[in-house]
Simulated assay, not measured.
Amino acid sequence: MTTLGVVFRPQQPPERLREVVRAAEDCGLQELWLWEDCFLEGGIATAAAALAWSERLRVGVGVLPVPLRNVAITAMELATLERMFPGRGIWGVGHGVQDWMGQVGERVASPITLLREYLETLRALLAGQRITVQGRYVQLDEVALDWPPATAPPILAAATGPRTLALVGAAADGVILTSSTPADGIRSAAEIVRAARPEAAAAQPYPIVVYLLAATGAGAADRVAAELRAERRDTIPGIGVAGDARAIADAVIAWTEAGATSVVLQPTGDEPDPVGFVRFAAEQVRPLLP
């Protein structure tokens, strides 16, 4: 079964989040995703609010940039949310956009080394372990959570290049791919992450979350094209879709057939009706999916 989600873009003001969450809960959307993009909205703050304003909705954060966050702080915050809202959070971490990391003085020489150390440490802390780490970037001295979650949540990680994909396949519980990933890119990524899985873990389906830029209604095609041009992604074929529910459902199905286990519709940054888009995804697109 295809899991369908929608991103609440942080280009929307944070005070609009509550109405989007309520709409997502009311219409049965499977997943609402949030971003921690510099310098827009915080991922933990928005996730906490979204979880508190809903009862059933799953809320994903994709992703928390690891150079910005001490791993102990991330573990504390995720553990707190997991204890208050068990099993409803979907947590992703990643390198972060390197230019943004440079702007705040947190760009590292080896993002892959940092991500590896971070994933290993974060997962150990959430599993309730007391650990000492003397890594290149992560250093802890006899640290353990006083309030670990009853069940350690899966930790996903963002990846694009083959080296990071291989790392994520080996060290994380799932991968998050950007909306710049075409169908062939999804297939290639799936091959890399699955090849990197330990033999015992490889028997289980490996979560592959993919964002899909999408728009519907008046001016939809123009908005998608304008965003792709502005981000210099208009030369990548097939990474945006505009049209009615059937057109968008067909694109979701194509992404699923390429290997995605969860497709998250990414409205354009200037989406005029984020509440309506959530309802459109849940009530019109979702029934057309396998």
Rank of each mutant, 00 (worst) to 15 (best):
T3S: 09
L4G: 02
V7W: 15
V7K: 06
P10D: 04
P14D: 08
R22W: 12
D26Q: 09
E31M: 12
D37Q: 01
D37N: 05
F39A: 09
T46A: 15
T46L: 14
A52W: 01
R58Q: 07
R58T: 01
P65R: 03
V66R: 10
T74P: 00
L81W: 01
E82H: 00
E82Q: 02
G89I: 07
Q98M: 13
G102L: 09
L122G: 11
T132N: 13
T132Q: 13
L156W: 15
P162A: 02
R163H: 03
L167N: 13
G169T: 08
I176F: 14
G185N: 04
R187Y: 02
I192H: 13
A196T: 06
P198V: 13
E199A: 09
A201D: 08
Q204N: 01
P207A: 02
P207T: 01
A214M: 01
A221C: 10
V224D: 06
A225Y: 01
A242W: 05
G243K: 06
R246P: 08
I248T: 00
V252W: 15
I253K: 13
A254M: 00
V264Y: 09
P267C: 05
D273K: 09
P274D: 07
V275F: 11
G276V: 02
F277E: 09
A282M: 10
